[in-house]
Amino acid sequence: MSENGFNKEQAREAGEIARLLSYVLILIASVALFLSAAAIPTSRFERLGAGAFPKIVFAGLALMAVVAIVDALRKIPAGAYGRFAVQTVAWAKRRSLVFICLAALALYIMAIPVLGFSIASFVFILAVELVLMPRSPKTLIIAVIAAAVFSFGLNWLFAEVFTVFLPRGVL
């Protein structure tokens, strides 16, 4: 978070607004789940049914979320909301590598049942390495070796040593 050329104070305000949004989401979710927990029938053998503990948890969660919302509203200056969209886009740009990595992980997980563990892992490791690394002949060779060892090698290790069979894929 040490890049130059962005306003730290505004970024912090945007962070507070993002947190406020998360509190609101938690509040909505906990109220909804509280209601759905209330619908769980109680058994006649006990005083507290299966829904009681979740109800306590979600009530606590909703209460904390309200406290957090009040706290956050106090901290955020009025002008900050207008700048929120711009700041969010700027934040996402600074963190673009994170999104690339997480997206790659999602694709990889979806590809495992189809391609099988070895091939999917090889492609995933190599692709993420290529995105992240400073490209030079030496790093390229290391990248390919690492990708091979941790895809085909890991598959072999688990199958032979731990007798855990990783997905083979349909191919």
Binding site: C101, I109, I112, F117, L132, I142, S151, L154, L166
Partner: peptide, 18 residues
């Protein structure tokens, strides 16, 4: 880091699956 991140991610996937 460019070496660690993808490799450890694969280890995470293996760990969750196993």
């Amino acid at each position: 880091k460019w070496l660690i991140v993808p490799v450890v991610m694969v280890c995470c996937v293996v760990g969750s699956f196993a």
